[in-house]
Amino acid sequence: MSTAMTDARPVRDEDRLDMARLDAWLKGAIAGLEGEPQLRQFQGGASNLTYLVNYGERAQVLRRAPAGAAGAGAHDMLREAAVMAALKASYPYVPAILARCDDPAVVGAPCFAMECLPGIILRRDLPPTLGLDTAGVRQLCTNVLDRLIELHAVDTSQPGIAALGKGEGYVARQYDGWTGRWQRALTEGTDACEDVVAWLGAVRPQRDTRQCVIHNDYRFDNVVLDPVDPTRVIGVLDWEMATIGDPLMDLGGSLAYWVEAGDEAAFLASRRQPTHAPGMLTRREVLAYYAERTGTDIGDFAFYEVFGLFRLMVIAQQIYRRYALGQTTNPQFAGFGEMVRYLGQRCRAVITTGGSVR
Score class of each variant (00 low, 15 high):
residue 3 T to D: 07
residue 6 T to I: 07
residue 11 V to E: 01
residue 11 V to I: 01
residue 21 R to H: 13
residue 26 L to E: 02
residue 28 G to Q: 09
residue 32 G to Q: 05
residue 32 G to Y: 07
residue 33 L to W: 05
residue 34 E to R: 15
residue 35 G to T: 11
residue 37 P to N: 09
residue 37 P to R: 05
residue 38 Q to M: 09
residue 42 F to I: 03
residue 50 T to I: 01
residue 52 L to N: 07
residue 53 V to C: 11
residue 54 N to C: 14
residue 66 P to N: 03
residue 69 A to S: 13
residue 69 A to L: 00
residue 73 G to Y: 01
residue 73 G to Q: 09
residue 73 G to M: 06
residue 79 R to L: 11
residue 79 R to N: 10
residue 82 A to S: 15
residue 90 S to Q: 14
residue 91 Y to V: 05
residue 91 Y to M: 07
residue 91 Y to F: 15
residue 94 V to D: 10
residue 95 P to E: 05
residue 96 A to S: 14
residue 99 A to R: 08
residue 100 R to M: 14
residue 102 D to H: 01
residue 110 P to L: 09
residue 114 M to Q: 14
residue 120 I to V: 12
residue 120 I to S: 02
residue 134 T to A: 14
residue 135 A to H: 03
residue 136 G to M: 01
residue 139 Q to V: 10
residue 145 L to K: 04
residue 150 E to P: 04
residue 154 V to T: 09
residue 162 A to D: 06
residue 163 A to E: 15
residue 164 L to T: 11
residue 166 K to F: 13
residue 169 G to K: 08
residue 170 Y to P: 01
residue 170 Y to M: 08
residue 172 A to W: 07
residue 174 Q to I: 06
residue 179 T to D: 10
residue 189 G to A: 04
residue 189 G to P: 00
residue 197 V to W: 01
residue 198 A to F: 04
residue 198 A to Q: 14
residue 200 L to E: 05
residue 200 L to G: 02
residue 200 L to K: 04
residue 203 V to L: 04
residue 206 Q to F: 00
residue 213 V to P: 05
residue 213 V to W: 14
residue 215 H to A: 09
residue 217 D to H: 14
residue 217 D to G: 14
residue 219 R to E: 00
residue 222 N to R: 12
residue 223 V to Y: 03
residue 224 V to E: 02
residue 225 L to M: 10
residue 236 V to G: 05
residue 238 D to A: 08
residue 243 T to M: 08
residue 247 P to A: 04
residue 249 M to V: 15
residue 250 D to A: 13
residue 250 D to W: 10
residue 252 G to E: 12
residue 253 G to L: 14
residue 258 W to L: 04
residue 260 E to F: 12
residue 260 E to Y: 11
residue 261 A to H: 13
residue 262 G to A: 06
residue 266 A to L: 12
residue 274 P to S: 08
residue 276 H to E: 12
residue 280 M to E: 03
residue 280 M to L: 05
residue 283 R to C: 07
residue 284 R to E: 13
residue 286 V to P: 10
residue 287 L to W: 04
residue 288 A to P: 07
residue 289 Y to D: 00
residue 291 A to D: 09
residue 299 G to F: 08
residue 304 Y to T: 08
residue 311 R to V: 10
residue 311 R to W: 01
residue 313 M to H: 09
residue 316 A to Q: 15
residue 316 A to S: 13
residue 320 Y to P: 00
residue 321 R to W: 09
residue 322 R to F: 12
residue 325 L to R: 15
residue 328 T to A: 05
residue 330 N to L: 06
residue 336 F to K: 11
residue 337 G to L: 01
residue 339 M to Q: 13
residue 344 G to W: 10
residue 349 A to R: 15
residue 349 A to C: 03
residue 351 I to S: 06
residue 352 T to F: 05
residue 357 V to W: 15
